[in-house]
C-alpha cells in the first residue's frame, strides 16, 4: 500500500467500473437474445405455423403443430413420472429423515442434477428404446422425468422446511397423527411454493433437446401413439437450424421464439410469485 495515493484511486475507479461493465454485459445478453428472437422469429410467426404440419422443403406454409403437441405430450409424461417421485421423496427428507441417510439422498440428488442431459438421453435409450426396438414418446417422457426427480425432490424439501415448526406442533397437539398433520397442514401451507418449484422444474426440462434426440426422436407427421416417435419443439429447432434451407431457418427462429417465451414466462411467473410470497411472510 505504499503506491502513491493517486495510483490507488485510479486502480480503484478502473477496477470498479470494469466490474460494472461485466455486470452490464452479462445482463444485456438476455435482452440481445430476446431482441433477435423477436425480430427474426416474430416476423414469421403466423397462425398456420401453429396449426399446420411441416411441409416438404420448398413448399411454403409449413407449421409445427405436431411438434407443439409432441412437446406437450413428452412434458406431460415427464410430469406424471418425475413429479410424484420427487414430491414424495421430498416429503421424506423434510418430515421423516434421520441424519445420515437424508444427507446421502440430498447429495445424490444434487449430483444427479448435474449429470449432462445427453447422458440421461442415453439412459432412457438403454432402458426403453433398446427393449422396445424403436424410438417413442414414452422414452422421451421418461428421460425428462428422470431429470425432474432430483429438482422436484430438492425444491419440495426446501419449501416444506420453510413451513414453521409451530404449525406441525399445533396440528399434533390437537390429536392429529403425524401423517395426518403433514397431509392436512404442512403440505397445504407449503403448497404454493412447491407448485411454483415444480413449474420451474418443468420450464427447465421443457427446453431440453439432447435427451430427446434419440428417445422421442422426430416425426414429420402426427405421432400415432405413445409408443411412436414424435416431433418436439427443441428437436425441430435443432434440425431446422442445422439445415441448409432458408425457409427452415425462418421456421427455426419462429419455433425458438415460441419455446423461449414459454420457458421465460413460466420462469418469471414462478419467481415473481415466490418473491412476493417471501416478502409477505416477513
Amino acid at each position: 500500500m505504499n503506491r502513491p495515493f493517486f495510483m490507488r484511486k485510479l486502480v480503484n475507479a478502473l477496477m470498479l467500473s470494469l466490474c460494472g461493465v461485466c455486470a452490464l454485459v452479462s445482463v444485456s445478453v438476455l435482452f440481445i437474445i430476446l431482441g433477435y428472437l423477436l425480430w427474426n422469429g416474430g416476423r414469421f410467426l403466423t397462425w398456420t405455423f401453429l396449426t399446420r404440419l411441416p411441409t416438404p422443403v420448398g413448399e411454403p406454409g409449413g407449421g409445427m403443430a405436431n411438434a407443439i403437441v409432441g412437446s406437450g405430450k413428452v412434458l406431460l409424461l415427464a410430469a406424471l413420472t418425475g413429479v410424484p417421485v420427487g414430491f414424495v421423496g421430498g416429503i421424506y427428507l423434510a418430515e421423516f429423515g434421520g441424519r445420515v441417510f437424508p444427507f446421502l439422498v440430498r447429495y445424490t440428488a444434487d449430483l444427479l442434477n448435474g449429470v449432462p442431459s445427453i447422458v440421461m438421453g442415453i439412459f432412457a435409450y438403454t432402458v426403453v428404446v433398446l427393449p422396445m426396438h424403436h424410438f417413442s414418446t414414452l422414452a422421451g417422457g421418461l428421460a425428462l422425468g428422470a431429470m425432474l426427480i432430483p429438482i422436484v425432490l430438492r425444491s419440495t424439501e426446501e419449501f416444506l422446511r420453510a413451513v414453521p415448526q409451530s404449525l406441525r406442533e399445533g396440528a399434533l397437539a390437537l390429536g392429529a397423527s403425524k401423517s395426518r398433520a403433514i397431509a392436512t397442514v404442512v403440505i397445504p401451507a407449503g403448497f404454493q411454493g412447491i407448485a411454483t418449484g415444480i413449474l420451474l422444474a418443468l420450464a427447465r426440462v421443457a427446453g431440453e433437446t439432447a435427451p430427446l434426440i434419440f428417445t422421442s426422436a422426430n416425426n414429420r407427421f402426427w405421432s400415432r401413439g405413445w409408443n411412436q416417435p414424435t416431433a418436439t419443439l427443441p428437436v425441430m429447432i435443432w434440425t431446422y437450424a442445422s439445415s441448409a434451407y432458408e425457409d427452415w431457418h425462418r421456421q427455426a427462429w419462429a419455433a425458438g421464439l415460441i419455446l423461449l417465451m414459454l420457458v421465460l414466462v413460466a420462469n418469471a411467473g414462478a419467481r415473481l410469485i415466490l418473491a412476493r410470497r417471501t416478502s409477505v411472510a416477513r
Binding site: L37, R204, A241, L260, R271
Partner: peptide
C-alpha cells in the same frame, strides 16, 4: 432468467 434459456436457443443464435 438467462440461466433458464434453453441451450438450443443459444445454438440458434
Amino acid at each position: 432468467l438467462l440461466a433458464a434459456v434453453p441451450s438450443v436457443i443459444f445454438g440458434v443464435l
